[in-house]
Amino acid sequence: MSLKHSLLAILVMVVWGANFVVIDEGLADVPPLLFLAMRFTCVALPLVFFVPLPRASWRNVVAVGSFMSLGQFSLLYLALHLGMPAGLASLVLQAQVIFTIVIAAVVIKEPPSRRQIIGAVIGTAGLVLVVIAHGVAAPVLPVVVMLGAAMSWAIGNVIARQAGVASGFSLVVWSALVVPLPALGLSLLVDGSEEVGRALTHLSGTAIASTAYTAFGASLLGYGIWNSLLARYPASAVVPFVLLVPIIGIAAAWVIQQEVPTVLELIGALIMLGGVAAATIRTRPGTGPQTRREAPTVPSSRDVDASPTR
């Protein structure tokens, strides 16, 4: 990749890494599912009136939106609301790489390579260590919910791979339509109309800024740049940058929220990232710009998309 595009990739990783802290700060004033509905309303509107439909069936768009957006982020927001540390959340969510490899092998019969198997085993060992280390000092439930978010994302990855859904800006915008109404309905059911009404009529500056950052920064700007890089370069040249996300996420939470991970959590994090790196990074010739227009969200189980949270 050129220096310019490498810097753009790093910029996106910084935006995505800080996104966990931004979400966590916004959740102080708004119920998690209502906050989710607000974010994806801003992602979808008014762009759906200007962005063309993705080259995929409605069934595939809805399925991808249901798992990659609604399922993943409702559980992510809920985990943060339950007390999941933002920095640790940025790490645990990367378990989606391991889950994707396993689900793809079972469901669509894409056997992983030996390198991916080794990486998955190492990553799982690191993840188990992180969960154990966190459980010593805090409830494990938020971690379990975060693993559910990673699993939902992995299912979405496999659906996108099986259906051949392209990873494009139009898919980000149109699949966002799946989120607002179900999220708002669940918020009304769980939080009650009085709490939802109070939150909407007393939005703080932090909540508004957080919504703007997550919608326009993390989702639209971040994925706009990300998809353009995937259109120019092989996934193997672009995807490894996402290993910066949990590093930036943990650092941001450390600086902004004084969230200091334990030594055991850091060791587990390093082991897990090592496994994810082994599963996603591969050296191959021909990493220059490509002429293809779009790249699949999950090229295959041998080149897993490890895109971080949107």
Rank of each mutant, 00 (worst) to 15 (best):
P240F: 01
V30F: 08
A160L: 07
I101D: 07
A89L: 08
G26R: 04
I267E: 05
S167L: 10
P54N: 07
R114A: 15
L91W: 05
A199N: 05
A306Q: 08
P52E: 08
A137M: 10
F241R: 02
R55M: 06
A295W: 00
D305K: 00
D191P: 04
C42E: 02
L70D: 01
M38V: 06
P85T: 01
F241G: 00
L45C: 05
L177Y: 01
M151D: 04
S187A: 13
I117S: 02
G286P: 09
Q258M: 10
H202Y: 03
I281C: 09
I117T: 12
G224I: 07
A160Q: 11
P246L: 01
F241Y: 15
Q72V: 03
P308M: 00
L141S: 08
G83P: 05
V298L: 10
I250E: 01
R55T: 13
F35G: 02
L221F: 14
V30R: 01
A154N: 10
P142E: 13
V245I: 12
A150C: 06
R292D: 05
P246N: 03
V158F: 08
D29V: 10
L243P: 00
L53A: 12
F35Y: 14
W58H: 07
V238P: 09
A125P: 00
E265L: 07
L3R: 12
P112I: 05
S113A: 11
I248V: 15
P142K: 11
V14R: 03
S57C: 04
A277S: 13
L244M: 13
I155Y: 02
A133R: 09
F73K: 03
F169Q: 02
L221W: 08
G148W: 06
L129V: 15
A277D: 03
G222Q: 07
E110Q: 15
M272E: 10
R293Y: 02
H5Y: 13
A160T: 14
L11R: 01
G71V: 05
V97R: 05
W153H: 09
I225L: 13
S210G: 01
S300N: 04
L93M: 13
P52R: 14
L264R: 10
L7M: 13
H202R: 07
V43I: 13
G185W: 00
S193V: 09
E265V: 13
M146C: 06
L186E: 03
L230N: 11
V255R: 06
E194P: 02
V140F: 04
A44N: 03
